[in-house]
Nucleic acid binder design. Structure first.
Lengths: 135, 135
DNA sequence: CTTGACTCTGGAGTATAGTCCATAGTCTAG
DNA sequence: CTAGACTATGGACTATACTCCAGAGTCAAG
């Protein structure tokens, strides 16, 4: 199949597929003399793999590594596991950082009772102004 | 004080300060004929405001709005509160999405018991390969 | 054999938040 | 007065993940 059909199948744009090719995520099965790329079902599978890994928070670079591991017969499950473990650590760190932000913002919102007050008395602006961080 | 001293005080680079100026976050108190920018304590305060707002997850664009509101005597606390509320909604959404990722990754890691196994039998790779998402 | 849909390449643009650089001018201490 | 530290400007570059475009070539149907 040509790139347009593949794009429809994987539900991503032809530009994105060409971009993924440049990034080494996918290779056409063959290329005609005209330059037209030809793909098959396994290409669609690869794209689905990419989309799913992206949903799990992997970057294109990491997905590239995953695909390489996946296609290397000498790869052990442990190598893949290590990547997933590193990723989950990243994710947990991000969650923690966002939760700290949420906590701070919530405290500020609770402190802000009189919405009609001037910005000079706004506890939110006030806390950002403070020298010491003591919300 | 000149830009270098301000940079030391706020613990950010002179390049970043000039970048913030271009983005409208800060203005020198005055500019010499030579082009040298002059700042004062309030400049340092503004930069601290920016850094703290950044820590709370606000983008530079949003901080720009916050600063504008803060310096406008007609601004009410409610306007600031609305921004903070929007931001907290964003943060909560991000947390939820990351938690979903964490859940999926954890499930995959638990499924992966034999780290020495070939990648062909790796449940992580397997789940990314699957047509249906049914981890 | 022509028309219209499709594809190619290469490059530019988007958003975010900076960082780094060369070249040139300025300032101040000794 | 000069050396060395500092500053200015404009533009390029980083990373991520695309998106869009022009101009040219290709392909299949009628």
């Amino acid at each position: 199949m040509l790139i347009g059909e593949l794009a429809d199948k994987a539900n991503i744009s032809v530009d994105t597929i060409r971009y993924y090719e440049r990034e080494g995520l996918i290779k056409p099965v063959s290329v005609r003399d005209s330059g037209y790329r030809e793909f098959d079902e396994s290409s669609a599978d690869t794209l689905l793999f990419v989309v799913r890994a992206k949903d799990l928070g992997f970057s294109l670079k990491e997905i590239c590594t995953l695909l390489r591991l996946k296609n290397d017969p000498d790869t052990t499950c442990g190598e893949v596991k290590a990547l997933a473990e590193k990723k989950i650590t990243d994710v947990i760190l991000k969650i923690k950082s966002l939760q700290a932000i949420e906590k701070d913002l919530t405290a500020l919102l609770r402190a802000c009772t009189d919405t009609a007050a001037s910005v000079d008395e706004c506890p939110i602006v006030d806390s950002l102004d403070k020298k010491e961080k003591e919300i």
